[in-house]
Each structure stands twice: as C-alpha cells, then as structure tokens.
Amino acid sequence: MTGMLDAGGMFREVTATQVLLSTAYPRIRFVEFAADDEKENGADWLWWWVDRDGTCYGLLVQAKILKLHGKRWSVDFNYKTRGDDRTQLSKLIKAANRFHVPAAYVLYCGDAQYRSALTCDRTHDDFPCKERDRAGVSAVSALVAETAVGLDAKNAGVSTFHDAVPVEDIASPDGLDAPIVPLARVLDQDLERFLRQPRRGSRRVAKELLRPVQRIRHGQFAGAAVMERAAPVTGALFENVPNDYGHFSVPYVAHMLCGLRAEVPGYVRDVLEGRTLPAWLTDHVGGIVVIPDADALPTASPGRVGDGGAGLLSLGFPEAPQPPHDQHPGQAA
C-alpha cells in the first residue's frame, strides 16, 4: 500500500490481498479459486485460523479499502451491483450463514501517513486511533459495519475502522486478551469461562472479533438480553448460546461464535489432503486462507492432519477440479 501511494497511485482490494497473502506465505497457507461469485455473495475469501489440536475459527471475508474522497473518509459498505437492490453488506451476512461462519471485513487502511488526516478523535490505550501500529490491515465483524451504517452512514467507515483489530495482533500468540463481560447473565459454564478467561490461538481470534460487537450491544437500548437459545450449529465449539439479537440483524453471539469449531471442517481437510473440493465451495468464494498456530513446528509430511495439526497445513491448487455435488454446506463441519 505504501509503495502504491509513494508512486502516486492507489492500492486496490484484489492486488492488496494477493500481495498480503504472497508475502505472508509460507507463514500462512492459501488457495485461490478461479470462480468469483462476489456479485451474489458479497464475499471474497474464507479465512480459517487453525490450532494444533484442530480447534479453528472461520470467517467469510470481504476486502474493503478505507478511502479518502476530498476530506471525507469512507468504506463502501452499501455498495450495490447494477440491477440489485441488496447491499453488499446484507448479502455478505446472508452468505455467511451458508458456510456457518460469521461475516467479516478485512480493511486495507494504508500506512500512518495515509491516515494522518483521519478524523477519528478516539484513542486506543491513550494512543490516537489513526496512529495505531499495524492497523493498515485490520479485521472487523460485519455486524459492526452494519451498526455503523445504521447510525451514521456518512461516517461509517471511520467508525468501523476504529473498532477493527489489526490482523497481526489477533494472529500473534503474544499477549493475553481481556475478559468479555456478557450481557446475558445465565450462560453455559464453558461459554462463560471462554468469555472471562484469557485465550490463545483461534479462541482468541473469536474473542477479539466478538469484543466490539459485545461492546455495541451493551450500548443498545434493546432491553435485557434474550435468554432463549439459538439453533445449534453442528460441530461448533459452543452449541448452547443465547439467541439475543439486540439491534443486530442476526443473533450476535451465535453469529460470531458459529465459526469456532472443535475440529477442522471437511472442506479444509479436503484441501489439506489433496482431495477434490466440493462445487458448492469453489463456485461461491474466491479462495481459502489458513493461518496456522504460530507455535506449531513445520513437518516433513505436508498435507496431513494429525498431532500438532496446525503445523501440518499445506494448501495446493487443485488441477482441473471437478467438485462432487454430494456435500452440502451444512455438512462442512
């Protein structure tokens, strides 16, 4: 991004993603598909954080740029394709349900010099928002963007950037996360411990993406949290979660945690083990990104998942794939 800006140009989502993934390789693994159904799904990639024990967290991700138009900063969350009244944001949240993962954005926000005129006057640990290290590539729940658009569409980009978390921070094994105090007071004990006690790996990623959503819910005048249980997702680490919507379009805890799984989904294993991928996957996303456990050691036998699974990740490009049609998205986990 800095290189393009120094050259008098502007970075773009597709190019920035390719540079990001190729530069981070082999620390991360990725596979890119030829199909692009972004017009229908509003989505680019499936991202998965995978721990050595197989616990993992997935996101359906759309890449967006924090743009400066004159003196106004924006992120085009309400983008619509010609002839379609639906916003890309609404399609992204709907498409995430297909894969049983939360919807999210990866924001490309340039460097500190690019953001120097950013109007956000809020801070992070007493540090100016726009000067945060590593914030050039940040992740945020689509529910945060949805709320920002609903409250103040004109300034939704800056507001969402403030709540976005640098990808490097949530992918790093260093440090501990602060507890999340849930609005619902009667939770499953395992879920309560997860929210209140420090976590690492994919569990920490899930908490860091949930944190601003929970903070927004605390500020909503939506009454007490609903104690009914959301419909469980097969394979989810937490199946007993509250069905509270607040002012979000979906049950926010269930949505944010449905992607936290006890084991690697079947289609990720298909990629890891060199099997043909199902058409319902390759026809609907641009690719898969896998961020393995940083503590996992490399292996001499890539492509197999076993003890220390995150260190055994190896993604390759399938040759002339002919995906079978016998696997339904609901069977992915």
Rank of each mutant, 00 (worst) to 15 (best):
R261I: 01
R275N: 10
Y267I: 10
L257C: 14
M256V: 10
P265D: 12
G274H: 08
H247M: 00
G266P: 00
G219K: 05
Q197E: 14
R229W: 02
V233K: 08
F248V: 00
L272V: 15
E273H: 04
R203P: 00
R203E: 13
M256F: 06
R199Q: 15
L237F: 12
A254E: 05
D244A: 10
P198F: 05
P198L: 03
G235R: 11
V264W: 11
R275Y: 10
P278D: 13
K207D: 01
H218Q: 07
P212Y: 08
V268S: 06
R229P: 01
L257F: 15
G219F: 06
A279D: 05
R275K: 13
P251E: 08
V226Q: 07
L237T: 07
V250L: 04
A279S: 13
P232R: 04
L260P: 12
V213L: 09
L237P: 02
R269M: 14
G246F: 03
T276F: 03
A279P: 01
G259V: 14
Q214K: 01
L272C: 15
L260A: 14
V250R: 11
G223V: 13
A231F: 02
G201I: 05
L277A: 14
F248H: 02
Q214L: 09
R204T: 01
L257M: 15
T234P: 00
A224E: 15
E263W: 10
A236P: 08
R261S: 10
A206K: 12
H247V: 00
R275S: 09
A231G: 01
T276A: 13
V253A: 14
V233L: 03
H247K: 00
A279E: 06
M227W: 05
T276C: 11
G201S: 11
A254L: 04
I216F: 04
V271T: 10
A254K: 10
G274V: 05
P212M: 07
R199W: 01
R217P: 07
T282R: 07
N240Y: 06
R215M: 09
G219C: 05
R229Q: 10
